[in-house]
Design a protein around this nucleic acid. Structure first.
Length: 637
RNA sequence: GCCGCCGUAGCUCAGUGGUAGAGCGCACCCUUGGUAAGGGUGAGGUCGCGUGUUCGAUCCACGCCGGCGGCACCA
């Protein structure tokens, strides 16, 4: 007999060899039905696997994160089974559970078509209906390799060969389909249910290496039940609805065209938003003790050679030639800032020197990476470099984190994750320098008291960095801010200051940005707010519209009064019904609509309606001006 | 860059081996209407670019350019 300890600490006695499913049934039929796997002494097992020793267990049910992961993995297997039934010549490779679903990579000469996906999904539902038993088998590794090779499944054989000696080789069999898999899996395919859907088709390299064969990846989403699936599909629709490329067009903010791929044509409204952001950050930096500079965009190759960019960043740089010289468009502002630092002698009394620039950088991103405002080839950073002593790193890091979090809060982001990225493989500077830089950043980070998670190997080529990731309104993460400790560039570009001791010293450079790229940050903001920007950010804040043409003169007066108060306002005097105009301006996401008709004209009032509200309010014109001016103030004002 | 899909009016999209349509938008006319679409008339297209097949190509084939999704890359 075995003693089974449940998560609440209570114990049960069972026969030796009892299965998770049996234990769940003993507790209750509902639990047995919802069960998808069992945790045995911390390990995730199949429900059908016999338990031979006393154990602490927990039944994993489908409506939990772990349960969904098991379901997703089963969905991947069901898909592979369906594909093998429909297209037997296909080789299967790997098919893991991922966030929100699963994928499976297949090797097949013929490309799959969207119609194939429908067929495969239909077959998956049939496999669920068949309720095939899923059986776990432990195989000898050599036999398994031979077995898969004989089946023509060369990728599977390769995977087994890569499994470390000593680890058990487990295969799972369902119907006529057998797959190498760590498990666990459901007891039978019927438990998968109907909460899955195939989503899209994409290419993916074998083992993620672009030198290898391109496989065909089929993505699916899978959930505990149909209701969850529906909710997920709704969130996806929401993301589409918020897409900054669509909203950018609808709101007349910007466009991109093929003659300038990767660069933005900012329309008047978009540029207004851009300037609001830039002005805001400029104010924040001024107050935080930064100076602002401007450095050249086109710079001779020799400087990039000296900085190390020519060696480490060459493939991302655009070049031009003139009078036998090779020039490059700057991909970063840092070398330029060092040139300014080097002008005139610097003393320790000048440090920390915080040098900011809204510098336009060009990077030749691969065509496939371009994406609206989010990934472009020409962008402007809210960039700055803090030249300081090693002793000042901690204090500057703390001040920067405080500033950054305060800025994010002003934009409505409260949920910020910080990551610590250390030395990458491709880097400048020797290990001793990296040791020092990493230690300095780590100590400074600890001093801030903020929670930081590691991001190994993702540092910049010249130094380790902090990455600041904000979470938007529908739960997506965006990395915007960064702080990088650099001991390399000051050395390479020969920056120095005279210390208290009268000797020359190397300053440290802290590269830092809060918004990151202004273009990208605008994209993130648009999607976060679904286009309904807060009043202080809205390019057009107020539209004054007339009920009939009788009120045109008064409407113009209202516009003038608001403009005088510094509001961004337009008149809509068109001969259209008020319903029509309300609808149009609502769709255009104008935050405030002021309607004026005969009543308002006579009483010198306005009828005020906020975007999203159904009601309106009548207000004296002078009061409306005061109120809107105060509501439109930037949060740092 | 790689794989898949796509490219038709300003926008969203339908369609055909015999040079093309809808809705919205736009212009003009009627309507002056109190909070999410009032009515009429009209203008508007080198069907992404190139080559080929064909009597004839927007449609079929190939190449290129661009877009979308993913992979790889990445601030």
């Amino acid at each position: 007999m075995l003693t089974i300890t449940l998560p609440d600490g209570s114990t049960q006695t069972h026969e030796k060899g009892v299965s998770g499913l049996e234990i769940a049934s003993a507790i209750g039929a509902g639990l047995a039905k919802a069960a998808v796997a069992i945790r045995v002494n911390g390990e995730l097992w199949d429900l059908t696997r016999p338990i031979e020793k006393d154990a602490a267990i927990a039944i994993v049910t489908r409506e939990t994160d772990e349960g969904r992961e098991v379901l997703r993995h089963d969905a991947a297997h069901a898909m592979a089974e369906a594909v093998k039934e429909l297209y037997p010549e296909t080789q299967v490779t790997i098919g893991p559970a991922i966030e929100n679903g699963f994928y499976y990579d297949f090797s097949r000469k013929e490309p799959f078509t969207p119609e194939d996906l429908e067929k495969i999904e239909k077959r998956m539902h049939e496999i669920v209906a068949r309720d095939e038993e899923v059986v776990r088998e432990v195989w000898d590794r050599k036999e398994a390799i031979v077995f898969f090779k004989n089946m023509g499944e060369h990728y599977k054989a390769e995977i087994i060969e890569a499994i470390p000696e000593g680890e058990p080789i487990t295969l799972y069999r369902q119907g006529n389909f057998i797959d190498l898999c760590r498990g666990p899996h459901l007891p039978s395919t019927g438990r998968l249910g109907k909460g899955f859907k195939l989503m899209k088709l994409a290419g993916a390299y074998w083992r993620g290496d672009s030198k290898n064969e391109m496989l065909q990846r089929i993505y699916g989403t899978a959930w505990a039940n149909e209701k969850e699936l529906k909710h997920h599909l709704f969130v996806l629709e929401e993301a589409t609805r918020r897409d900054h490329r669509r909203l950018g067009k609808e709101m007349d903010l910007f466009h991109i065209q093929e003659e300038a791929v990767g660069s933005i044509f900012w329309h008047a409204k978009g540029w207004t938003l851009y300037r609001i952001l830039e002005d805001y950050i400029r104010r924040r930096l001024d107050r935080a003790g930064y100076v602002e500079v401007r450095t050249p965009e086109l710079v001779d190759r020799s400087l990039w050679e000296q900085s190390g960019h020519w060696e480490k960043f060459r493939e991302h740089m655009f070049t031009a030639e003139s009078e036998e010289r090779v020039l490059a468009l700057k991909p970063m502002n840092c070398p330029g800032h060092v040139q300014i630092f080097r002008q005139g002698g610097k003393s320790y009394r000048d440090l920390p020197l915080r040098m900011a620039e809204f510098g336009t950088c060009h990077r030749n991103e691969p065509s496939g990476a371009l994406h609206g405002l989010m990934r472009v080839r020409a962008f402007t950073q809210d960039d700055a470099h803090i030249f300081c002593t090693q002793d000042q790193i901690t204090e500057e890091t703390k001040a920067f984190c405080t500033l950054l979090l305060s800025v994010y809060k002003d934009f409505g982001y409260e949920d910020v994750v910080i990551k610590y990225a250390d030395r990458p493989d491709l880097r400048a500077g020797d290990d001793a320098v990296w040791d020092a830089a990493e230690a300095a950043l780590r100590a400074a980070t600890e001093a801030t008291g903020l929670a930081v998670s590691p991001n190994p190997g993702e540092g910049a080529f010249y130094g380790p960095k902090l990455e600041f990731v904000l979470r938007d309104a529908i739960g997506r993460d965006w990395q915007c801010g960064t702080l990088q400790v650099d001991f390399v560039l000051p050395e390479r570009l020969n920056a120095s200051y005279i210390g208290e001791d009268g000797e020359k010293h190397r300053p440290v450079m802290l590269h830092r940005a809060i918004l990151g790229s202004i273009e990208r940050f605008i994209g993130v903001l648009i999607e976060h707010y679904a286009g309904r920007l807060p009043l202080w950010l809205a390019p057009l804040q107020v539209v004054v519209t007339t009920i009939t043409n009788d009120s045109d003169a008064y409407a113009k007066e209202v516009v003038a009064a608001l403009q005088k108060a510094g509001l961004r306002v337009e008149a809509d005097l068109r001969n259209e019904k008020i319903n029509y105009k309300v609808r149009e301006h609502s769709l255009a996401k104008v935050p405030v609509l002021l309607a004026v008709g005969n009543r308002e004209t006579e009483n010198r009032t306005v009828s005020i309606r906020y975007l999203g509200d159904k009601d309106q309010e009548s207000l004296a014109l002078d009061k409306a001006v005061v109120r809107l001016t105060s509501e439109a103030a930037a949060p740092d004002a």
